[in-house]
Design a protein around this nucleic acid. Structure first.
Length: 935
RNA sequence: GGGCGCUUAGCUCAGUUGGUUAGAGCGCGUGCUUCACACGCACGAGGUCGCAGGUUCGAGUCCUGCAGUGCCCACCA
């Protein structure tokens, strides 16, 4: 291949091509292995993509989420796991219905006019046309999912599974239908779950209203309320039996103002004597607490509002008013009748609809619920119990860990889940009602029943659909073929990991755990299949996944939440187009430290684009040299290609023949180990930074620089040159593999180029990830190299201080102990070249008295240069150094003089301190000598 | 009302169980068309780790209080 790459890396020139290649070649498909096949011997890693809404457009949160998943997934795949990453989309009930309704509105139509069937067909059309947009964007990100298994939550097989679950839970008595107070959104016209209500503390008023005692002209009870319009539906006033103030009124009745209805005074703990007047109005049809009190006292339930939030015929004169207009009208009338006793400023926690911000109305209606805390008929644990146990026992582990507590706290305070929605788009509830009024039979069935089994009457299906989260909560097993296909479940269930945002911890994660633990109870993973590490410690295979990683929120550079109204939303596709997918992914990975949100600053991405460019140019450099060597007949890439094994764990065939070779190999292994342990604990930031530092700070800055003369064949020894080429290409190739999960595109491009059309696999994504091999550390090489680097930097530093012209070569003198001296002697060429030195001389006596000297504990080095040094500046520098040294010595001496320190501190700390003190003595002596020498 | 975080260099953030000299990127300063890279190279400046106490031989790290800041949960009017 031509190795004439453009000088600057242009991601747009290659990324789309590879993204398309990965999909076209189906590289990431994970077919289910048949029992006993070689594939079935692989350890398994399963991950479910949190399905984006069909209505969705990719945002930074998705990109963060997908980047993290892709890193983990590619890492496992490269390590030889049978890796399944399963993609799909969610039908997103309310969101999608709203979207299509809005579209209809533009055409001057509405869904009621269209009718249910036509409307649903319309949504399907919409979905066929636009529903794939977000998955298309995912492909552009390089997400290595198995596209052959793509699903949609309303697919026939998944819908069948939803009905199966519903029917089973109904039969187990864990799904029930009933008339209760639910959260109702008047705008969406549907019930919503507790979780879909967002509470917001809002300044409001607490109104005190006088309810006259029936038959008395003067006596009344004052009640307090924040929602005066609900008084129209009051059916009692409660006082606490122990409350002295109201003893004399027990058993009496009140006259409900505005409605002129007699209502009883009841004794109930609902009334808290400490609060307000101690008397509370009771509205069983419009408040959850009042509802319960109503049941206790057999009170009538008067609904005074319709499903749109308008007062109904039960609201007397206020019928037809919108609820807040009614509030004003009620207040005005109370005022004019002298019954409004007070208005106090009061902070009210107002519940708003998560979807549309409309204020939620507690409303009495008939809905379907799922029992969260009710044990099974056979005494088996409740859904919440099983889920809580799975987390408490460690069968499911959260990262960051504090989510465990958040999860458990929620689980312990859970209420039954309202699962029916008054919508048209979604899984229709599989319940049918007999049209025969006398019969009233309810049939819950997997398939549409023909007629009422009781009376043979006509059946009508329930018009409601299920909460979207009902079906998505089942995905960990339904996407694997439950209930029919058990082979996929045997192999891939449980999922290993779930990576998602904290915002859907309860909505989704909690429900998956409940459903999984319930329906997969007793499931055993095929024992012929091995799962990832930790398998042995955790044996409960009913859990939907073993690990949950909760990722942070992506904010803008100013730490503001991204929102459309603020106009600070960063479109990942735009960022990608500007900096490249690799750089954007790397930014997200490098900034993903646990527990803190990510302030996404494009400046940072710019830096990682530079990193990609750096790698690009390292490749250009290597290819340039390779081409030259090939022309000279010294070395060819084929020499490497022929020896490269497909599943080389480290950098096989590397021949350390030099300090820098030994050093880079040792560093490579150290970094591979660090990356491994970072990824194992989901420290994406650490992993990314380690690779970055290695690639740029060690490979490019030092190894490549040190290799230049060797690659140029300056030794004249062709065999040595060949070793040099073999080594640099091997380390480079290994480093590309190390980097691949983070920057899949550039690494693929260069890796393919190295193999020049004859790669050992179809993609770098399918070869072995560099293994952590602690045995390959060469600590001597690392120490020696550190001294060498220190020496070179010291000389450069001195040159800058002495204002030596950049390219002027200068003589240096070095004073060092024998071993160090020999090491430097061996690497004399490197020092001369990298520090621009000519004439390296070793001296026997200390250089401390001379000018232009740097001193470390290992060596003294002097740049011999005529230019007169600035004595004042040098004295100041030395003075500062001396002060620093003395301060530190003072500290160390004090500690070492402390008896209890010597007794209690671990020996290695004490020893380290002694050594350091000895070093300091020497350094101080030298600095002081130098200072005196200045005169 | 309950719970959980965060405060370290000008900015954005690392800093694992308390242990020898607190780090990175960006930004800043100086010098470089060094035959891979100016999306670069080299060198450098910059921090009493929010405040006040405490525990400890030893605290950025543990405890208490205070201040600032962010988030989640919540059917008491």
């Amino acid at each position: 291949m031509p190795h004439e790459l453009p000088k600057a890396y242009d991601p747009s020139a290659i990324e789309a091509r590879w993204a398309e290649y990965w999909v076209r070649e189906k590289l990431f498909a994970a077919p289910t292995p048949s029992p006993g096949s070689p594939e079935s011997q692989q350890p398994v890693f399963t991950l479910l993509l949190p399905p984006p809404n069909v209505t969705g457009r990719l945002h930074m949160g998705h990109m963060l989420n997908q980047t993290q998943m892709d890193i983990i997934v590619r890492w496992h795949r490269m390590r030889g796991f049978l890796t399944l990453w399963l993609p799909g989309t969610d039908h997103a009930g309310i969101a999608t219905q709203m979207m299509v309704e809005r579209q209809l509105a533009k055409e001057g139509k509405n869904r009621r006019g269209l009718g249910r069937e036509a409307f649903v067909e319309r949504v399907w059309e919409w979905r066929r046309e636009y529903g794939g947009a977000i998955l298309g964007q995912m492909k552009r990100l390089g997400a290595s999912v198995d596209w052959s298994r793509e699903y949609f939550t309303m697919d026939e097989n998944l819908s069948r599974a939803v009905r199966e679950v519903f029917v089973r839970l109904y039969e187990e008595g864990l799904i029930y239908r009933g008339k209760y107070i639910v959260n109702w959104c008047p705008r969406c016209g549907t019930a919503i779950s507790d979780l879909e209500v967002k509470h917001q503390e809002t300044p409001g008023k607490l109104y005190e209203i006088r309810y006259p005692v029936s038959g008395s002209k003067k006596e009344f009870i004052t009640v307090a309320t924040t929602r005066p319009e609900t008084m129209l539906g009051d059916t009692a006033v409660a006082v606490n039996g122990a409350d002295q103030r109201y003893q004399h009124l027990h058993g009496k009745k009140l006259l409900l103002p505005l409605m002129d209805r007699e209502i009883p005074i009841i004794l109930d703990e609902l009334a808290n004597p400490e609060f307000g007047t101690g008397a509370v109005k009771v509205t069983p049809a419009h408040d959850a607490n009042d509802f319960q009190a109503g049941l206790r006292h057999n009170l009538p339930q008067i609904v005074v509002m319709d499903e749109r939030g308008f007062m109904n015929e039960n609201a007397g004169a206020y019928a037809g008013l919108e609820r807040f207009e009614a509030r004003e009208a009620v207040l005005q009338d109370l005022r004019s009748q002298g019954l409004l006793a007070g208005e106090k400023d009061y902070v009210v926690p107002i519940g708003k609809c998560d979807r549309c911000r409309t204020i939620v109305e507690p409303r009495l209606s008939t809905q379907w619920f799922m029992a969260m805390t009710k044990p099974g008929r056979d005494g088996s644990p409740s859904l919440a119990q099983r889920a809580g146990d799975a987390v408490k026992s460690g069968e499911i582990r959260f990262t960051p860990e504090n989510n465990t507590r958040i999860f458990l706290q929620w689980m312990e305070n859970i209420y039954d889940w309202c699962i029916s929605r008054q919508l048209w788009w979604g899984h229709r509830i599989p319940a049918w009602y007999c049209g025969n009024a006398k019969c009233g039979e309810i049939v819950v069935a997997r398939e549409t029943p023909a007629k009422c089994p009781q009376c043979g009457g006509r059946l009508e299906q329930d018009t409601d659909v299920l909460d979207t989260w009902f079906s998505s909560g089942l995905l960990p097993f339904t996407t694997l073929g439950w209930p029919e296909n058990t082979r996929d479940l045997d192999v891939f269930y449980p999922n290993w990991l779930m990576i998602t945002g904290g915002d859907i911890l309860f909505f989704w994660v909690a429900r998956m755990i409940m459903f999984g633990c319930h329906f997969m109870h007793g499931h055993e993973q095929d024992r012929g299949i091995k799962q990832a590490s930790g398998f042995a410690a955790r044996k409960d295979d009913s859990v939907p996944f073993r690990e949950v990683y909760i990722h942070a929120l992506v904010r803008d550079a100013e730490r503001q939440k991204m929102s459309k109204t603020k106009g600070n939303v960063l479109d990942p596709i735009e960022v990608i187009e500007q900096y490249g997918t690799d750089a954007t992914r790397f930014t997200l990975a490098a900034m993903a430290s646990p527990g803190t949100d990510i302030a996404f600053n494009p400046k940072r991405t710019e830096g990682y684009r530079a990193f990609a460019n750096k790698i690009w140019n390292a490749a250009r450099f290597i290819f340039m040299n390779v081409d030259r060597a090939q022309q000279a007949g010294v070395w060819s890439l084929k020499d490497f290609q022929n020896s490269a094994g497909e599943r080389a764990r480290g950098v096989s065939g590397f021949q350390p023949s030099n300090l820098e070779d030994r050093w880079i190999l040792s560093r490579f292994n150290a970094v591979a180990a660090e990356v491994h342990s970072a990824l194992e604990t989901y420290r994406f930031d650490e992993a990314a930074n380690r690779v970055y530092d290695f690639f740029w700070g060690e490979f490019c800055d030092w190894y490549v620089e040190l290799m230049k003369p060797r690659l140029a064949g300056e030794s004249g020894d062709n065999a040595a040159t060949r070793v040099a080429f073999g080594n640099i290409v091997r380390v480079f190739e290994g480093a590309l593999r190390l980097l691949h999960p983070f920057m899949p595109f550039i690494t693929e491009e260069i890796w393919q180029a190295i193999y020049d059309g004859k790669p050992p696999a179809k993609s770098i994504a399918l070869v072995e990830y560099p293994a952590a091999d602690p045995g390959q550390r060469d600590l001597d090489a690392e120490t020696e190299m550190a001294i060498l680097q220190d020496l070179i930097v010291s000389v450069r530093n001195l040159r800058a201080e002495l204002e030596v012209e950049t390219r002027q070569r200068v003589p240096i003198q070095i004073h060092a102990v024998d071993g160090v001296r020999q090491m430097i002697e061996h690497n004399r060429g490197a020092v001369e070249r990298l520090a621009t030195v000519e004439g390296l001389e070793f001296v026997e006596t200390s250089l401390a008295k001379a000018g232009g000297v740097r001193t470390t504990s290992r060596f003294e080095v002097r740049v011999v240069f005529e230019k007169k040094i600035d004595i004042g500046a040098e004295r100041a520098r030395l003075q500062k150094e001396l002060e620093g040294l003395e301060r530190e010595m003072e500290n160390k001496r004090r500690q070492l003089g402390n008896e209890s320190f010597l007794q209690k501190a671990p020996p290695h700390v004490v020893e380290g301190l002694r050594k350091r003190l000895a070093e300091l003595e020497v350094l101080r002596e030298k600095a002081s000598t130098a200072l005196h020498a200045l005169g």
